[in-house]
Nucleic acid binder design. Structure first.
Lengths: 226, 226
DNA sequence: CTTTTATTTTAGCCTCATCTAATTTTTATT
DNA sequence: AATAAAAATTAGATGAGGCTAAAATAAAAG
């Protein structure tokens, strides 16, 4: 059985790797807000338990077992976020910290009943995929908004790594998961984007904000879907 | 802010006092499953934080602040139990341990939204009162079943301190909160009780089981209510 | 009012998960 | 290849929160 701290370290490693970054000792330390020496010990413990392979200076790798464990935590975290937003009326910018606590509650039954209660959702309120009980996630065809060409019509599929402040900003601009718009223009000066929503409303998004917005193709006449 | 262990000790003290017992060091130790020496330290910490008054050999007393804190924990515990049973389909004998974990999640907003979501219930699945956000609980006129006279018609109001095994046993006999029955007879030999349910079905309950059943008066013609 | 027993406290040790500071190892630069 | 820089590890400390064993204190019994 993993301690809470072990779970947190495992999740940090998984998040780093999933984000395409390497999970070297220092990366984990930075993400955890602790010191490298502390991380050395925790990673050693996780390696002893067969959850990851240590490769000093090159970043740790998760084993299949480690990945499975991490996905269970991700599943719990995202199910709770979904519950908080959809059932309890939390804003999408208010759930992370609470879900961070809830995800450590140990009960397979709880997790599965919660998932069922929520209708086995495939995505959480930020558009992140919720692994099913076997760790499988739904594949999608997404790009970050800055990679979208002028004139393309897209639908917001996820806000990746969004801080609460970013989520609030997007909320104020009326941008949420499922929102469909066309990229009208891009400013050379600051790479900010000019968007036109389906309802004709124009809005501007900074390059920094846009980088967190992942979108999928929206067929020209389509309004909403999945 | 209280640590998890401090919260557990505070809750243990509160539970002992609420149950009419004294909360001496050894009582707390027994309830916590730890040693007296460990309890000495934790109680000292709680006393330092102004949550209780130490009175060695005579049992600690909660301060107003300590009682308020304890009631917040009780509220959270019972709200989660209610959620698990009413929304997630858990049995009333399966929720204690999970609620024990959930109650430590820190978020006023979560607690209050959960309560609202559940319809601000006044009682949990075992019939125990759920304190409101100010710590107030609904008063009731209850007696333990063994104190009920032959011929009296009563309604099950709560199962106090019921182990999972007892709850399962009661479930199998069809006894739950709100169940109405008449005490038909009492065996001198073992103090077991003969009951007749509203539907005419007879059943026997051991003195040991009956001691946990708290009941309120049921007017002769009434079938069910609150 | 002693003596015995129960209860509580103290003292010292242990494990965890963190830290700082020093050291070692690896990678990168010249 | 030598050296500088970065990253990782080790060593030793700390604070929680538990333990055991011994000592102190209060309550109960005679």
């Amino acid at each position: 059985m993993l301690t809470r701290s072990e779970e947190d370290h495992l999740k940090a490693v998984h998040a780093l790797l999933e984000g395409g970054a390497s999970a070297a000792n220092k990366d984990v330390a930075e993400r955890m807000g602790t010191k490298a020496s502390s991380v050395t010990m925790m990673l050693k413990k996780l390696a002893d338990k067969g959850l990851l392979k240590l490769e000093p200076y090159h970043g740790v790798k998760l084993t299949a077992k480690g990945r499975a464990e991490a996905l269970k935590l991700v599943r719990k975290h995202r199910l709770w976020e979904t519950f908080l937003v959809e059932r309890l009326g939390f804003g999408w910018d208010e759930v992370h910290e609470v879900a961070e606590q809830l995800e450590h509650v140990r009960s397979e039954k709880l997790t599965d009943h919660l998932a069922e209660y929520l209708g086995d959702p495939a995505f959480d309120p930020h558009g992140d995929p919720i692994p099913d009980r076997h760790g499988r996630i739904t594949a999608r065809n997404m790009r970050p908004l800055p990679a979208v060409g002028t004139g393309e019509r897209v639908r917001v599929a996820a806000v990746k790594d969004g801080s609460d402040a970013l989520l609030q900003l997007l909320g104020r601009k009326g941008i949420g998961i499922g929102k469909v718009f066309t990229v009208r223009d891009r400013q050379d000066f600051d790479q900010s984007l000019e968007l036109v929503a389906a309802d004709g409303i124009h809005l501007t998004l900074s390059a920094k904000a846009a980088a967190h917005l992942w979108v999928e193709p929206a067929s020209p006449r389509e309004r909403r879907a999945p």
